[in-house]
């Protein structure tokens, strides 16, 4: 059983708390990889949780499931704020900081689009957000 399964079995509040705690510890436990990619001390569980939430968001937008989509987007917003803070803390990676910030902004815009039932726009923003994940991974993963 992988960690993500354990997380997805928990309710979201507990999951967020767990993530918050494990994220703080991430720096302590992270090892230094030997390849050229810098180790940014980013917690894999945080990322897996982000992915799970982002997948759920895509689905909820597609199903026009307002409550579910809002729950996902609020959660993603929190996670990206954490990521932003993390990049601010470690410094030295302006592109990472920029993409984290861009993602936070996108989740705020997504919140607006979903709140106003503008699912076309939400779909577009969702793709943009997923592309921001991809851009950051191309640079740092």
């Amino acid at each position: 059983m992988n960690i993500k399964n354990q997380f997805t079995g928990l309710n979201k509040v507990i999951r967020t708390t767990t993530i918050l705690i494990s994220f703080c510890c991430g720096l302590v436990f992270s090892s230094y990889a030997e390849d050229q990619t810098p180790d940014l001390g980013i917690d894999i569980d945080l990322m897996n949780f982000m992915e799970e939430t982002n997948d759920s968001l895509t689905s909820n937008i597609s199903l026009m499931n307002r409550d579910g989509a809002l729950e996902d987007v609020v959660l993603l917003n929190e996670l990206f704020v954490m990521l932003e803070e993390h990049f601010a803390e470690i410094g030295d990676y302006p592109e990472g900081a920029r993409l984290a910030k861009k993602s936070t902004t996108l989740t705020a815009q997504l919140n607006d689009a979903i709140t106003t039932d503008n699912y076309n726009n939400a779909t577009k923003l969702g793709i943009e957000l997923s592309n921001a994940c991809k851009s950051c991974h191309e640079k740092f993963k």
Partner: peptide, 12 residues
């Protein structure tokens, strides 16, 4: 329970 599409979370 998830709506899946051919382009995952992407596609333009």
């Amino acid at each position: 329970g998830r709506a899946e599409r051919p382009t995952v979370n992407f596609g333009k």
